[in-house]
Design a protein around this nucleic acid. Structure first.
Lengths: 137, 137
DNA sequence: CTAATTCCTCTAGTGGCTAGAGGTTCAAGG
DNA sequence: CCTTGAACCTCTAGCCACTAGAGGAATTAG
């Protein structure tokens, strides 16, 4: 049996966040002591680790919930889990691509007018002028 | 003179968002018609484009505001603008790196147990098991 | 002059937490 | 057994950057 603080330490999820997940229905309501404090079992620890990991991967809570409901899934439900993973991968690749385009632009801006400080800074100009960008975003 | 809708069309910033920026002090309060409707000039359009662009680049509104206050800056203030750009570039590169690590993991998960559907799906297992990850995140 | 469109203000909701107030329970040391 | 201090409890409010909707007024095209 773990206290909420122990659960927090073992998963890296902050205490208020654990309560927040319970509120949202992602974690089941745990047992309570006579003094109304939460006590968790191994299953809760595993479940929270799952949530933590999928959140780290960038999945929104709604998807985490969907995956959790597929525990011990079979047949079509398995396909659904794959589907979620595939969609997330797609989203992630899009995000990476977009950020990389922004990176090259920001790199250009950050080095603008280094050395020669004219009376109007090129950095400020560059932030304002989308026309200068190499690609769309 | 532009209506708020025209400003929206020309910048791609939604109408409620424009009012939101005004509320936050990022845009000055524009003139009003006799009937209390906002009318914007060229300067407002430029300013909103600047905000839009810097937001697209991922800068938080606080940084956008800081840059806006540096309009026509000189000396140390110019360095401050550079500093903001440099810090953002650094942040962006970190974000990209992290997402790329996640990408490889998610790719692994998405293809897990493709073909052979055992009684416990590897996708669900993979989402739960951080130990399987190649690197930290 | 009418009808459609756009505008106004205001409130509340989103996601995913995080912080704080004000009070209670627990575990260890004396 | 009693005290102390850490950890716990609930509840409310705040964060960021918007977004949506209600209910009503102004503008514009025909």
């Amino acid at each position: 049996m773990y206290t909420i603080g122990e659960l927090s330490r073992r998963t890296g999820v902050k205490v208020p966040t654990i309560r927040f997940y319970e509120d949202k229905g992602l974690l089941p309501q745990p047992e309570r002591t006579a003094g109304n404090q939460r006590r968790y079992d191994q299953a809760a620890l595993d479940r929270l680790r799952f949530i933590r990991h999928t959140r780290d991967l960038g999945l929104p809570l709604a998807d985490v919930e969907a995956l959790l409901s597929l525990e011990g899934a079979q047949g079509d439900d398995l396909n659904r889990a794959h589907e979620i993973a595939r969609r997330q991968l797609h989203d992630l690749r899009e995000r990476i691509g977009k950020l990389q385009r922004l990176e090259s632009e920001l790199a250009r801006i950050a080095t603008a007018c280094d050395g020669q400080h004219d009376h109007v800074c090129a950095v400020l100009h560059a932030f304002g002028a989308h026309d200068d960008c190499s690609g769309p975003h």
